[in-house]
Measured scan of single mutants.
Amino acid sequence: MASQGTKRSYEQMETDGERQNATEIRASVGKMIDGIGRFYIQMCTELKLSDYEGRLIQNSLTIERMVLSAFDERRNKYLEEHPSAGKDPKKTGGPIYKRVDRKWMRELVLYDKEEIRRIWRQANNGDDATAGLTHMMIWHSNLNDTTYQRTRALVRTGMDPRMCSLMQGSTLPRRSGAAGAAVKGVGTMVMELIRMIKRGINDRNFWRGENGRKTRSAYERMCNILKGKFQTAAQRAMMDQVRESRNPGNAEIEDLIFLARSALILRGSVAHKSCLPACVYGPAVASGYDFEKEGYSLVGIDPFKLLQNSQVYSLIRPNENPAHKSQLVWMACNSAAFEDLRVLSFIRGTKVSPRGKLSTRGVQIASNENMDAMESSTLELRSRYWAIRTRSGGNTNQQRASAGQISVQPAFSVQRNLPFDKPTIMAAFTGNTEGRTSDMRAEIIRMMEGAKPEEMSFQGRGVFELSDERAANPIVPSFDMSNEGSYFFGDNAEEYDN
Score class of each variant (00 low, 15 high):
11 E>A: 13
211 N>Y: 06
163 M>C: 15
218 A>C: 07
452 K>Q: 12
217 S>E: 03
454 E>N: 04
23 T>A: 01
302 D>H: 04
472 A>Y: 12
106 R>T: 01
488 F>A: 11
474 P>N: 09
73 E>V: 13
205 N>D: 13
321 N>R: 00
175 R>A: 10
421 D>F: 01
203 D>W: 10
257 I>D: 12
445 I>S: 03
473 N>I: 03
431 G>M: 04
475 I>V: 01
485 G>R: 13
485 G>L: 03
441 R>H: 13
184 K>G: 01
204 R>L: 12
223 C>M: 12
254 E>H: 12
155 V>F: 02
283 P>F: 00
395 N>F: 06
171 T>S: 03
216 R>L: 01
414 V>A: 04
333 C>F: 03
265 I>M: 03
322 P>H: 12
482 S>W: 10
72 D>K: 13
211 N>K: 06
148 Y>T: 13
369 E>T: 05
257 I>R: 06
436 R>D: 10
129 A>K: 00
460 G>D: 06
357 K>G: 08
172 L>W: 06
252 E>W: 11
64 E>C: 03
359 S>P: 13
206 F>C: 14
63 I>V: 13
43 M>D: 07
229 K>I: 04
173 P>D: 02
70 A>S: 01
88 D>I: 09
105 M>K: 15
226 L>E: 06
201 I>A: 00
455 E>M: 08
378 T>M: 00
15 T>L: 05
445 I>R: 01
252 E>H: 11
360 T>K: 13
140 H>V: 06
363 V>K: 13
292 E>D: 12
238 M>Q: 14
61 L>N: 06
62 T>D: 11
376 S>G: 08
352 V>L: 02
366 A>R: 10
350 T>F: 01
3 S>L: 01
185 G>N: 04
427 A>G: 15
422 K>S: 01
29 V>T: 04
379 L>V: 02
282 G>H: 08
283 P>Y: 14
187 G>Q: 13
155 V>A: 07
36 I>V: 14
2 A>Y: 10
480 D>P: 14
481 M>E: 11
229 K>V: 11
99 R>F: 10
495 E>G: 13
461 R>K: 12
69 S>W: 10
346 F>K: 04
116 I>K: 13
3 S>H: 01
392 S>Y: 07
299 V>D: 10
443 E>W: 10
